[in-house]
Structures are given as structure tokens and as C-alpha cells.
């Protein structure tokens, strides 16, 4: 075990310049820490910037500002050779297993590549390791000769997972790994990911919009809205005592496959705002039922709710302090199930 966090993100910012001098703030100053063997989920809807974070953290796109440290090493100054060696430590499982496998490579070729390039293994060792890998992810050695179009969606994602763990990274970024799978396959792939995490001591940075999946997988959850982290904390805290109105609305809206669930009815007005040149105000302004005039004057910072639980909403947090917890005492989402 090293002394460093596996992943340390400091004031990360990614701004895309647009025509007319306007700037799209896709990621607007976020801090995250992920420890060895832990699963941190980054939750948000489309347009929240969560996928941009995943790509900045691996430098598949260049961050505009801020720092990203992986196992203590800053990735910002790395040249392309050093970057290639960084990818031994951090790997990614992509959302769409169709698009993330080269249609012209067999499963064997897919798995040999990281072994050859990252670990410089000789051919016979690679073959043995490739066989071990397919079995580790629940496929058979016969699958090594298959091409992506000969596999089912779940099998393709298993290949994507095998590729990610091939070079024995300690951090795996899971970019919506089950979003394009059927529910029954989803459960199997998640079970596989949990088993691999246990056996290989992996840290997962789990990007998702799917709250039930996040609740199932994550140790901690960070909620992202329009480029900012609005709430972060241990999974149970976030789901049982969400403090930020956006988190509450998100949990209230998540479909639950159960009969007779009573839930928080907090709904937001309208649709997600624009990340282009955001004003210095809470990004939920105009949608939030708890909005106060002060929300429009400054961008709220993350405030501590409880140990390890922070939220960027002075309104709910202020209320709970002054009005004797009225906002937080409301029966919160989904827990009061039948």
C-alpha cells in the first residue's frame, strides 16, 4: 500500500472555447480523492461533465487547469511516452462495448495488446495470461478466437473488462459500464466487477447516471451538476440524507422497481441549464424549489453536513441549523419502502 491516494483531483477545470469568445465550462473546478481499493461514483445527468472528468483524468483530453495525480504522480506534465506508462496504472472500461472494441481484432489480439505493450511479455506467456484473463471474467478460452460481432453485448463488455485489468492497474475508470446492457446482464457484469475489485484490490472511479447501480457499487458518491460537484459523501449518507436539492431531486426521480414505494416529491423546474459562461451563482438557480435571493449572488461552496459528507447548498444546511432540521427531517426518498 502506498501513502498516496490512488487518484487525487485538484481544482480540475476543462473549458472548451466556443465561437464568439464564449467558453463552455464542462468541468469547473472540482476536487476528488479516491483511495486504494475504494469505489467512488461520479453521478450526474447528461451535460453534467462527468464523462469529461473521466477523460481529463486519463488525459484522453487535456485539462484546462488544475492537477490530477495518479498514485502520487501528476499526469499534467507527462509526455506521450510517460503517458503510455501511466496507462499501466490506470485503465478504463467504456460505456458501449460495441464501440470500444476494434471490429477487426479478435479477443486474443485485444488481450495480447496490453500484455505486449505494457508488460513486454513474450508470446507464450501472453497466451497463458490471455487464457487466464478470459476465464477470470467468466468467458471460455474458446472465446479468444472470436471477433466482437460474434459476441453478445454482455460478453463484449467482459472482454472490455479483461482488457482493462490485463496490465494489472490499480485504478479502473468505469464509464457507464452497464448503461447499454440489459438488466439481467447488468447484474452479472456488476457482480463480476465487484469480484474483480475484491480479488485484484482495484480502486474504481465509477461514472454513472444510474442511481440504483451507484448505490449497489459505490463506497462514496459525488454528485455533479453543470461542471460542479454539488454533494459528496458516503453512499448511505447520500441516499438516506441527501442535503442538496439536486441530489434529492435526482433520487426522487430515479425509477424504483418496487411496489408501493413512498418517496420524496422534490421536483426541479425545467431542464438542465447551459454550461456556457455560467454566472457567479448557484447553478440550480431557476430550477430549485428552495431558491432564495442569496442563491443568485454567489456560487455556493461545499459545506460540511456530517463526517465526510459535504453539500453546496447553504439554504438547506442553514435551515437545518436554524429551523431545527425541518428540511432534513422530511421523509427522505425511497427508504420508507413497504
Amino acid at each position: 500500500m502506498s501513502d498516496y491516494a490512488v487518484l487525487q483531483v485538484d481544482k480540475l477545470r476543462k473549458i472548451f472555447p466556443l465561437a464568439g469568445g464564449r467558453r463552455l465550462h464542462a468541468v469547473d473546478g472540482i476536487d476528488l480523492t479516491l483511495h486504494a481499493g475504494e469505489t467512488l461514483a461520479l453521478v450526474g445527468e447528461s451535460g453534467s461533465g462527468k464523462s469529461t472528468v473521466a477523460r481529463c483524468v486519463t488525459r484522453l483530453i487535456e485539462p484546462t487547469a488544475g492537477d490530477v495525480r495518479i498514485n502520487g504522480r501528476s499526469i499534467r506534465p507527462l509526455d506521450s511516452v510517460a503517458l503510455a506508462s501511466l496507462y499501466r496504472e490506470v485503465q478504463m472500461v467504456f460505456q458501449d462495448p460495441n464501440a470500444s472494441l476494434n471490429p477487426r481484432l479478435s479477443v486474443r489480439q485485444v488481450l495480447h495488446e496490453p500484455l505486449r505493450l505494457h508488460l513486454a511479455m513474450p508470446r507464450d506467456k501472453r497466451e497463458a495470461r490471455a487464457r487466464a484473463l478470459v476465464e477470470l471474467v467468466g468467458l471460455a478460452p474458446a472465446h479468444l478466437d472470436r471477433y466482437p460481432h460474434e459476441l453478445s453485448g454482455g460478453q463484449r463488455q467482459r472482454v472490455g473488462i479483461a482488457r482493462a485489468i490485463a496490465a494489472e492497474p490499480n485504478l479502473v475508470i468505469l464509464d457507464e459500464p452497464t448503461a447499454s446492457l440489459d438488466v439481467s446482464v447488468r447484474g452479472q457484469v456488476l457482480a463480476l466487477l465487484r469480484r474483480l475489485q475484491r480479488e485484484l484490490k482495484l480502486a474504481y472511479f465509477f461514472i454513472s447516471h444510474d442511481l440504483p447501480v451507484v448505490r449497489h457499487m459505490a463506497d462514496r458518491v459525488a454528485v455533479m451538476y453543470l461542471g460542479r460537484i454539488v454533494e459528496i459523501g458516503p453512499t448511505a449518507e447520500i441516499f438516506e440524507r441527501p442535503a442538496h436539492p439536486y441530489t434529492r431531486a435526482l433520487i426522487a426521480a430515479a425509477p424504483i422497481a418496487q411496489w408501493g414505494v413512498k418517496r420524496d416529491r422534490l421536483r426541479l423546474a425545467g431542464e438542465i441549464g447551459s454550461p456556457v459562461d455560467p454566472p457567479d451563482a448557484c447553478r440550480l438557480v431557476g430550477r430549485c424549489p428552495l431558491e432564495q435571493p442569496s442563491c443568485r449572488t454567489a456560487e455556493p461552496a461545499l459545506l460540511t453536513v456530517a463526517n465526510g459528507h459535504q453539500a453546496a447548498c447553504p439554504i438547506t444546511l442553514g435551515q437545518s441549523a436554524t429551523l431545527g432540521q425541518s428540511a432534513l427531517d422530511r421523509p427522505m426518498p425511497s427508504q420508507t419502502a413497504a
Binding site: V183, S184, R186, G187, L190, L211, P212, V213, V214, R215, H216, M217, I256, A257, Q258, S334, Q335, A337
Partner: peptide, 13 residues
């Protein structure tokens, strides 16, 4: 039952 169980993943019962 299987479909239901798979869909209820992560939800408290």
C-alpha cells in the same frame, strides 16, 4: 422473479 431481482439491484427491500 429474476427480472425483478435484477431490476431491484441496490435498492433497499
Amino acid at each position: 422473479r429474476r427480472l425483478l431481482a435484477a431490476s431491484q439491484l441496490g435498492e433497499p427491500v
